[in-house]
Simulated scan of single mutants.
Amino acid sequence: MKRALITGVTGQDGMYLSRLLLSKGYEVYGLVRGQNNPKLDVIKAWAPEVKIVTGDLLDQSSLLRALNEAQPDEVYNLGAISFVAYSWENAQLTSQVTGLGVLNILEAIRLYAHDDPSKVRFYQASSSEMFGRVQEVPQRETTLLWPRSPYGVAKVYGHYMTINYRESYGMHASSGILFNHESPLRGPEFVTRKISKAVARIALGLQDQVSLGNLDAKRDWGFAGDYVEAMWLMLQQDEASDYVVSTGETHPVREYLDIAFNHVGISDWEKHVYQDPQFFRPAEVDLLIGDSAKAQDKLGWKPKVSFKELVEMMVDADLEREKPAGA
């Protein structure tokens, strides 16, 4: 039985990945920061077989203790401050957790597996936000990185630190450069879930309007359940490497709104949407679209859920959540 340790286990990707690994017969450990974590009950309900260990990406000694307890064959580092808008409000904390946290877990693994650093396979959650002001369309593993947010900069640091540990210590360390991936488990602060929740509430007569930022921003959106499979496949390869994980399609926020509102029978959605300047980024990332040819060729991976299916899945989930009790 393989053993895996997941940081960020209470997040969207951590929850989908934990179920995937459990379905493959893994013994799964989830790193949680503090026993009073408000999401602890959520992961226990979602995947009760996950064994919880405490630790903090900013405390290397706690990471060593977690590794000694879990004794993992694979470590998936999904822990981060991942909300881009927040990264401008608290750039220092974002840099520490999302950037230096990667160094801390890599160094903890190196010390834990000192006799053979490659015996613990490592996955780093890199991000399409690293491309920022895109220098090539579509973006691939070799595209120049030009981040446009503190979050993106921190992710670049973690990405290159992962490469450095792979090349310097022979660690089996891979990075997945994941483009936007959503699901009904996405936090309500993210634009996709903010829209799906608002559409459900508007359809149910619980609210009348939603405030959004740039409706013309284009993203390559996929389903988180598909993307965690790519993470797992990376760690099953003989050699570690970096992979873009994406659908290869780009959709503006307006198209997301079209599909979401039409799904509940509302065609004139403009009257329900207010563009608020406070939700515009200081430096916008206008177009992200990934080339996942390497992942498809080397890993045999490809996305299964279409953009339309993803949007409708999220709206349906929020309709169910928002229905009055007993309805």
Rank of each mutant, 00 (worst) to 15 (best):
S168L: 13
P147S: 05
K24R: 15
I202R: 00
L58T: 13
W146A: 13
T10D: 06
G132P: 09
I81T: 08
K194I: 06
I195D: 00
L103A: 11
H272C: 13
R254H: 11
G205Y: 07
G290N: 05
H263S: 11
K39T: 07
A47R: 02
V315M: 03
V9G: 01
N104C: 06
D226V: 07
W46T: 12
E69G: 04
A240R: 04
S196Q: 07
L185F: 08
S183L: 04
I6Q: 04
F307D: 00
V32A: 03
A217Y: 11
T10Y: 03
E239F: 10
E320K: 15
R110L: 12
D216M: 13
G99M: 04
I43A: 04
I52E: 02
Y76I: 01
Y157H: 11
G8P: 00
P277F: 12
K271P: 03
D238P: 14
Q139A: 14
M231D: 07
A80V: 04
R33P: 00
L22N: 06
D316S: 14
R3P: 01
R219N: 05
G225V: 05
V285I: 14
D220Y: 03
H114R: 11
S128V: 05
I81G: 01
G34C: 06
Q207M: 15
L17V: 10
S174H: 07
D116T: 07
V311R: 01
L178F: 15
R148W: 09
G248I: 04
D41T: 12
V245R: 01
L67M: 12
P324C: 08
M231V: 08
T250V: 12
W88F: 15
D13Q: 13
E167F: 09
M130D: 02
N180E: 10
D56V: 06
P184H: 05
R33E: 05
P252I: 00
Y26Q: 02
A327R: 12
G265F: 10
W146K: 14
H172W: 08
N36M: 10
V245W: 05
K308C: 06
N262D: 12
M15I: 05
L206P: 00
G99Q: 02
V245F: 09
A203Q: 06
I202K: 01
V153M: 13
G132Q: 02
A70I: 02
K298A: 12
V32W: 00
H272D: 07
V42Q: 10
I109H: 03
K218M: 15
D13W: 11
V244W: 05
G187I: 11
K119L: 09
V228K: 01
G8K: 01
N214L: 04
I266L: 05
A125P: 00
L319F: 08
R186P: 01
G79P: 01
F83E: 14
S95M: 11
S175C: 15
T247G: 00
P184T: 10
V245L: 13
V120H: 04
N214D: 15
Y29K: 03
E239H: 15
D226R: 10
M231I: 08
F83Q: 11
K51P: 01
M15R: 08
T54N: 10
H181F: 12
W221V: 15
S95D: 12
G187R: 13
G152A: 06
S23F: 07
V120I: 14
S306H: 07
W88S: 09
W232C: 03
L103E: 10
Y160I: 07
Q96E: 14
